[in-house]
Simulated scan of single mutants.
Amino acid sequence: MKSMIIVALALVAVAAAIPVDETEIVNQFFDQKPDGSYVSEFETTNGIQRKEEGVLKEALDEENIPHKFVAVSGVISYVNPDGEVETIRYVADENGYRADGPSIPKVPASS
Rank of each mutant, 00 (worst) to 15 (best):
D31A: 06
V7G: 02
V12D: 04
E24K: 12
E86K: 07
E22S: 12
F42R: 00
A13S: 10
E84I: 07
T44F: 10
A71Y: 01
T87W: 01
G74N: 02
N95T: 13
N46A: 15
N80H: 05
T44I: 06
G54L: 10
S103D: 12
Y90M: 05
V12S: 06
Q32K: 11
K106D: 09
M4V: 08
V14P: 01
V12C: 04
P34E: 09
V14A: 07
V85M: 09
K68D: 14
E58P: 12
R89G: 05
G36E: 11
E62A: 15
Q49R: 14
V12L: 03
S40H: 14
Y97T: 14
A109V: 13
A13E: 02
S37V: 08
F29V: 11
V91F: 04
A10C: 05
T44E: 11
Q32A: 15
M4R: 07
K68E: 15
I25N: 06
V14L: 05
V55N: 08
K33H: 09
M4E: 14
A16Y: 03
K2S: 03
K33G: 05
I6R: 00
Y38E: 12
Y78R: 08
G36I: 13
V7E: 00
N46I: 08
V79T: 15
P102H: 04
A109R: 13
A10K: 02
V79S: 06
L56W: 06
G96M: 01
L56Q: 05
L11G: 13
V12W: 00
L11Q: 08
Y38S: 12
I65Q: 10
A59T: 14
P105I: 12
F69G: 03
Y97N: 08
V14S: 03
D31E: 09
A17F: 03
G96H: 04
S110D: 03
K68C: 08
V85Y: 04
I6M: 00
L60F: 13
P105H: 11
E41F: 05
Y78D: 07
I88Q: 02
K33F: 10
P34C: 05
P34S: 10
E43N: 10
D82G: 04
H67R: 07
S77P: 05
I18T: 11
P102Y: 06
Y97C: 06
Q28H: 14
E84F: 10
V20K: 05
A15Q: 13
S73P: 03
Y97F: 15
V26R: 06
Q28N: 12
